[in-house]
């Protein structure tokens, strides 16, 4: 997709969206937001990049393979669970090392700990999974367009009579595409 407006806008928007996604992630515990929504915002940023500049560039900008990002996220969430198990004796129990109890029974300090790590894990899983499927889908569709279109004539012949037939033909081509 070669659109000058989109490309230019993306250069300004994508970094902002990424920063905003981290903000959403961090504020999530007290205000609307959180790892899931933040991850979706970041994924939107990459979808924009992919649309404006192509899959290859979007992949380069992500640096890690999407599934690696997702796996790191799952690992972080598991680690947060283990942290709770080691520190509190229950898997996934919340641990805040910087929080101290005050004299009047309240708590004070910086609420950073296993729960935030868990949320970061959710964020990474969402970014990795959405980007992975998106990039793969785009590549599959591009590969299909580059194929010489001969599938339609060979199968069934004639103009498609129903949506189903149109779909089937396209699906057949998508599935068999690489072998032709």
């Amino acid at each position: 997709m070669n659109s000058l407006i989109l490309t230019t806008a993306t250069r300004a928007l994508a970094p902002l969206l990424l920063v905003f996604s981290v903000y959403i992630l961090l504020r999530g515990h007290n205000e609307p937001g959180g790892g899931f929504i933040g991850g979706l915002v970041a994924a939107t940023a990459f979808a924009l990049l992919e649309k404006a500049e192509g899959v290859a560039r979007a992949r380069r900008l992500l640096r890690l393979r999407p599934l690696t990002v997702a796996a790191l996220g799952l690992g972080a969430a598991l680690l947060a669970g283990l942290w709770g198990a080691v520190a509190k004796g229950h898997v996934l129990a919340g641990v805040w090392p910087l929080i101290e109890k005050t004299a009047d029974g309240g708590k004070s300090g910086l609420p950073v700990g296993s729960v935030l790590l868990f949320d970061v894990g959710v964020y990474l899983v969402v970014v990795g999974a959405v980007c992975g499927v998106l990039f793969a889908l785009e590549e599959a569709a591009t590969a299909l367009e580059c194929e010489p279109d001969e599938g339609g004539a060979g199968r069934g012949g004639g103009a498609p009579k129903t949506i189903d037939q149109t779909m089937d033909r396209t699906i057949d081509r998508t599935v068999d595409g690489g072998d032709r």
Binding site: G28, H29, N30, E31, P32, G33, G34, G35, F36, P66, L67, A70, A71, G73, L74, A77, L78, A80, G81, V91, L92, G94, W96, I99, K107, P111, V115, F118, D119, G121, V122, V125, V126, G128, A129, V130, G132, V133
Partner: peptide, 30 residues
Amino acid sequence: ALGRNIVNVILVDFRALDTLGEIAVVVIAA
């Protein structure tokens, strides 16, 4: 749980095990 957004606190603390299962499913589906 030191959070005022109860939706998020439910997701990542009270019911974190459910979320863990869900993100595992997301990874597997991807």
